[in-house]
Design a protein around this nucleic acid. Structure first.
Lengths: 327, 327
DNA sequence: CCCACACATGGAAGCGCTTCCACCGCAATA
DNA sequence: TATTGCGGTGGAAGCGCTTCCATGTGTGGG
């Protein structure tokens, strides 16, 4: 075990024959430096394998670079949903682009205060909140002001990015109506997620127009709940001829529940989901759904944060109907 | 915008009427402190809402607390696989338990050197490498020695945790043989992943015993590749009566490819996967597979790292056959 | 009654870095 | 020639924290 220290900026400065101040200027690219210094420092950095210490840097600049993703809703179910994975992938890509790290934080639904602990050594360059709830967003640490964005609607004061699930729902339900369905049930998302509200509204509107009466049961975006919901729906309204779930995962569960009940899809009941996850095309029957450009949304959110775009309000991304076999 | 600074240890010390050194001792719990000091400092911490600055702490202790997860194989496909998500969830749980953060790093397959950049301000308390490749592991920064574990086999010098896919494969293939299949094909994992080798060996062994000839096509753990592989297999060996894929995702793809070919499952061809992901029970026909206790494995890896267990070598976790409809 | 010994405590150093500031030499201007 | 201006530079301060060390302060034993 040789006591081989990792190179420090002082080492670089010494090797390059300049002061530490100059070395710092060259390494960070801030401030003036002669071509000669620049070259010598660069050479020293390369030969020593110098990597700046992020902690020390964060300590003095009072601001870090890491991109933090905070996912609200601390249940294992959240990650079974490919949604979070897709958000993470995209964020990771943006982070890689910018050469910053990304950290992941799981926040229990009812301890929004924990968001405050995220400042974590000022190491953060930005924060993306997934599934934002209002109380959670209000506890965002002061230190992060101006460097926060939300994925999902419901954010105040911070830019927010979400799929237009009002239009998406409208498209799906209209498709159901167009194909002759009239007794259409809907499985919603978790009630604490404000973003589902607009979808439910759209569902009600289309039904009002087409003369159907609403049949809404609560969901939570899990497959298990979908299976339960299917049973509930068929027990309560046996003449139901279509089920729309605000999540493909749930729709897949509905498919399963219906299958267990001996109900044929789409013969007896049409089923549609939302999100167009990878498995949607793989189920039997393949799931009719509406796209959710998660990658685009998450990428935009991450960029917005890292670029310090001071915009606020929600940007909606379009959702497109994908007709497969189930409806 | 009031210039409201966040409380520092000096503020705490002043408010408690002790020196900064004493305040530090109380906050960290290291070193002696009288009950009186302890109480006063605790009160000051509470009233000021003091949170230690992780950067400053990491700077001086030369070691952080954050748990880093490095996933090797920088492709979007990796995250479509629920596998990584399950690892992350588990790691996040352990991190929450220990009140440390977790950061996520996506490492391109062919730039193992990037692992070195992870030391990232010594902010790391431990590193878990997912899908370890030998070259990648060799570049783990010195600073992290003794605080690294791997999920998946192939690690040298660091503790490693994986499912016993040799036994799992053995179980699945034997089940296939037991149910009368003899012309069994296998779709493997990506060739750069050493952990698949033992599974392939087990497959060969069972086949040797039962007198079947091996039919191996390469896979990459994606569903898309599964569909392709199904077509390849049926073209090359039309009398194939079973396909075993080393990943449920791929098996689901095989199901899809077979369906497109008009091949009935399990009537004409039995299909089995590996991992028992959530969707395995949802497909039609429901997938026969072998469990992969990812949560257990990842939890063990995370704990091992955070607890500085100096064990090395691989711990294997059992895999259990789950018989459903597809085989 | 004094010394040794523990325990508590505060002062000060220093982790690796950025950045303010004063300074220097040089070219351009008066 | 004397003056300004400016790009380039190094010294030094300081970010918030831990920890070494020397210094009190109270106990028990000799």
């Amino acid at each position: 075990m040789t006591a081989e220290r990792t190179a420090t900026l002082d080492d670089v400065a010494r090797a390059a024959g300049v002061s530490r101040a100059t070395a710092s200027r060259v390494v960070t690219g801030q401030g003036p430096a002669s071509q000669r210094s620049r070259d010598r420092v660069a050479a020293a950095v390369a030969s020593l394998g110098y990597v700046p210490d992020a902690s020390a840097r964060a300590l003095v600049t009072r601001t870090g670079t890491r991109l933090a993703i905070a996912v609200i809703g601390h249940t294992a179910a959240v990650l079974d949903d490919p949604y979070v994975g897709r958000v993470l992938t995209s964020a990771a890509h943006v982070a890689a682009e910018r050469e910053v790290g990304v950290s992941l934080h799981w926040l229990p639904l009812h301890d929004p205060g924990s968001l405050a602990r995220l400042a974590d050594g000022r190491g953060l360059g930005g924060l993306v909140v997934v599934n934002p709830t209002r109380p959670a967003l209000e506890t965002v640490p002061r230190a992060l002001r101006g460097r926060v964005a939300a994925v999902g609607v419901g954010a105040r004061d911070v830019p927010s990015f979400d799929v237009d699930n009002r239009a998406g729902t409208d498209g799906v339900v209209r498709h159901l109506v167009r194909t002759g369905r009239r007794r259409i049930a809907m499985v919603t998302g978790p009630s604490w997620l404000p973003c589902g509200d607009r979808a439910v509204e759209a569902y009600h509107e289309v039904l009002r127009e087409s003369g159907g009466e609403p049949r809404v049961v609560p969901g939570d975006f899990t497959a298990g709940r979908g299976a339960e919901a299917a049973v509930e729906i068929m027990a309560r309204w046996p003449d139901t001829d279509a089920v729309f779930a605000l999540s493909d995962l749930t729709a897949l569960g509905v498919l399963d529940g219906l299958h267990a009940l001996g109900v044929r899809v789409p013969g007896d009941v049409a089923v549609a989901g939302f999100d167009d996850i990878a498995f949607a095309g793989l189920s039997r029957p393949a799931l009719t759904t509406s796209t959710h450009p998660v990658e685009e949304i998450a990428t935009a959110a991450a960029r917005s944060v890292l670029d310090r775009h001071a915009t606020s309000g929600t940007t909606f991304y379009p959702s497109a109907l994908v007709v497969r076999d189930s409806a």
